[in-house]
């Protein structure tokens, strides 16, 4: 009895979760079919998905997706290789931190897209430009998160380590670094979406090959259904990457208090 009630409640929640999506899709379809929204700009949802499934069979679609993901992974990877060690270096010494704080605070708010013209000039319209922009943008959240993580250490843990006569190097590897891992994980998740944004921006503005360029081509060619289909794809990629990082965070950090209550 109680079991059946629980399943029914679960089913109700599940229905609520998807009712919103279904309603929006049906309304959009109706609005377009009845001409409430001009079909030239808002093709029916069914046509968007037809275009999407047609694209799934095309080699150019997979090539473009691969190129976007290539820009993302290289941008995020290089940014992580630079930002995490830099954050560790600055986070372990008050003198180093204070020396570079003003420089970081000034460079960080520079909108990364301001560097688009410089990237075109120096690297041209190819992959290098995309990666350069993604690295610059993804660097800052990771650096800041690593810095905060290194500084936000439980003082009791440090005192305990001192009481046990751990050396400075041991204190850093055993106490400070594990404490900073959740911050770095959050930084990776933020930087991942930032790197994807900059990869798509480079494709859209500079014309580097990838999904962004295909979206723009669909607009210029008047293929509204394909345009929406590709926007949906970029959204799904963004959502997929984000969920992947969130899931990895939960797995790796299952020991950490911030994750214990989450499941």
């Amino acid at each position: 009895m109680a079991h059946a009630l629980r399943t029914r409640r679960g089913l109700g929640r599940w229905a609520q979760t998807w009712a919103g999506v279904a309603t929006v899709l049906v309304l959009a379809e109706l609005a377009s079919r009845t001409g409430l929204l001009p079909q030239r700009y808002f093709p029916p949802v069914t046509e968007m998905f037809t275009a999407l499934f047609a694209a799934l069979g095309e080699p150019w679609f997979w090539l473009a997706t691969g190129q976007t993901l290539q820009g993302w992974v290289l941008g995020l990877g290089i940014a992580a290789l630079l930002a995490v060690p830099a954050g560790m270096l600055l986070g372990t010494s008050v003198v180093r931190y204070r020396a570079f704080r003003a420089v970081i605070e000034f460079l960080r708010p520079i909108p990364s897209v301001a560097l688009v013209p410089l990237a075109i000039l120096v690297y041209g319209a190819g992959l290098e430009s995309k990666v350069f922009l993604a690295v610059f943008a993804a660097f800052w959240p990771l650096l800041i998160q690593t810095l905060y993580g290194m500084q936000d250490v439980d003082p009791v843990a440090v005192d305990t380590a001192r009481a046990f006569r751990l050396t400075r190097a041991e204190r850093i590897t055993r106490v400070v670094l594990p404490g900073a891992v959740p911050y770095v994980a959050t930084g990776l998740r933020i930087s991942s979406s930032v790197a994807l944004i900059l990869a798509v921006t480079a494709e859209l503005v500079i014309g580097s090959p990838g999904l962004g360029r295909e979206i723009n081509a669909a607009r210029v060619g008047g293929a509204a259904d394909l345009l929406y289909a590709l926007i949906i794809v970029t959204g799904l990629i963004g959502w997929g990457l984000n969920s992947m990082f969130a899931a990895a965070e939960r797995r790796v950090l299952h020991w950490h208090p911030s994750q214990r209550g989450a499941r």
């Binding site: 990869a199 798509v200 859209l204 503005v205 607009r219 345009l227 590709l230 926007i231 984000n242």
Partner: peptide, 10 residues
């Protein structure tokens, strides 16, 4: 989750 610049063509 949609990368913001993808909304520009739209």
């Amino acid at each position: 989750a949609v990368p913001p610049p993808a909304l520009l063509p739209f």
